Simulated scan of single mutants.
Amino acid sequence: MTIHTYTDLPLVDRAAFELACARHGFAPMQFDIRGEADPNDPDHGDMLIVRRGAWAQAYRIDARGQWLRQFEVDLNGRFFRQAPHA
């Protein structure tokens, strides 16, 4: 898998990612996304690393789109919100 930005995601995942971002007041380009092999379990495929500022989260990629549901849970929990600068 070669994913360097959200535009490299499969079309269905990209559309779902864009919608999740929009629902939470983000633009997709506010996130850095890259795919890589899972170093702890290479037999189970790839991981997607989603980063915004100092915050990053890894999601296992599967055919059911579970990573998108987990990403939205993180958005709901405000994981990717940056603290205001003093």
Rank of each mutant, 00 (worst) to 15 (best):
M1R: 12
A54V: 05
L11Q: 03
H85G: 01
H24V: 09
A22F: 13
R60D: 09
P39A: 15
Q82W: 00
H24F: 11
P84I: 09
I33Y: 01
I61G: 00
F31R: 06
F17Q: 02
F71M: 02
G53A: 11
I3E: 08
A86C: 10
G77R: 14
H4M: 12
Q66C: 05
Q30K: 10
T7L: 09
T7G: 02
N40E: 15
D38Q: 12
W67M: 05
Y6C: 06
R64H: 13
A27C: 09
T2W: 13
N76P: 00
T2P: 04
D32N: 03
Y59L: 05
Q66I: 01
Y59D: 08
P42D: 13
I49G: 03
P28N: 11
G77P: 00
A54W: 06
E18L: 02
E72G: 06
I49L: 11
Q82I: 02
Q30I: 06
H44Q: 14
A20K: 05
I61D: 04
Y6D: 04
M47V: 13
N76V: 12
T2S: 13
Q66N: 10
P42W: 14
P84Y: 11
Q57P: 02
F71C: 03
Q66F: 06
G77W: 10
F17H: 02
V73H: 14
L11M: 03
G25D: 14
A86K: 08
F71V: 01
A58T: 11
R60I: 03
G65P: 07
W67I: 01
P28I: 12
V73I: 12
G53H: 10
I61Y: 07
R34V: 04
D32S: 10
F80A: 01
V73F: 13
A54G: 04
N40D: 15
R64L: 13
A86E: 11
A16L: 04
G53Y: 08
D8R: 03
P28L: 10
R52H: 08
L75Y: 02
P10Y: 05
R60L: 10
D74E: 05
L9E: 04
A83G: 06
F80R: 05
F79P: 03
W55F: 01
R81D: 07
V50N: 00
A56V: 09
G65A: 13
A37T: 14
C21P: 07
I3G: 04
D74H: 09
R34P: 00
V73R: 15
G35L: 06
R69A: 08
M1E: 12
R23Q: 15
T5N: 12
I3H: 07
P10G: 04
Q30T: 05
R81K: 04
V50G: 03
M47W: 10
R23F: 14
F26I: 08
I49W: 01
D43Y: 15
Y6F: 09
F80P: 01
V50I: 12
F17Y: 03
A58I: 09
H44W: 12
G53E: 10
L9S: 02
L11R: 03
A83M: 06
Q82D: 04
D38P: 08
G65M: 10
R69S: 09
G53P: 06
P28C: 13
G25W: 14
G53V: 07
A22Y: 13
A16P: 00
A16E: 03
T7Q: 07
Q82P: 05
F80K: 00
